[in-house]
């Protein structure tokens, strides 16, 4: 059983995110027409573990970069960079863009300071894990990025 959200389509974009079940924690998944789009969507799924992403105003951007020898490790680093940014900046994010090149990721996350009354945050994410950590092409023209996060 999955919870899924389809975002407004941009051109032929199939960008969306969903959660999948893991008995102790939460599986997050981003789907897009490219690895970049899948990376951007999975972070919306990450925010959705904590609050409803539609409650988060994309007011200010932060820039993040990571480097890793293979793509799945880059995905692990990207998610953990967001977890770290949320914990230390007390911010929450709802819009993401990602550029991938030569095992490097340059990303932007747009969000706002955490507002307990408005965002009603549910649970904090401790970190991304290697469980179900995968980046793979699914249906033709679709890329899936997924991971179980520890809460």
């Amino acid at each position: 059983m999955v919870e899924s959200k389809v975002l407004p389509q941009r051109g032929r974009s199939i960008a969306r995110w969903e959660h999948f079940s893991h008995v102790a924690d939460v599986g997050i998944r981003g789907i897009g027409s490219s690895p970049e789009e899948a990376f951007a969507q999975i972070t919306v799924a990450l925010t959705a573990v904590i609050t409803d992403p539609s409650l988060v105003e994309p007011r200010e951007p932060i820039r993040l970069s990571c480097a890793a020898p293979f793509m799945e490790l880059l995905l692990f680093d990207w998610l953990n960079a967001l977890v770290f940014a949320m914990a230390t900046r007390r911010m929450i994010f709802s819009r993401f863009s990602v550029r991938l090149r030569d095992h490097r990721l340059e990303g932007e996350a747009w969000g706002e300071p955490l507002d307990l009354a408005r965002h009603q945050p549910d649970v904090e994410v401790k970190g991304a894990t290697y469980t179900e950590l995968r980046l793979f092409p699914d249906a033709p023209g679709e890329w899936v990025a997924q991971c179980v996060v520890d809460v």
Partner: peptide, 8 residues
């Protein structure tokens, strides 16, 4: 020990 996922 959990027996049901958070989403469920």
């Amino acid at each position: 020990g959990r027996q049901m996922s958070r989403n469920q």
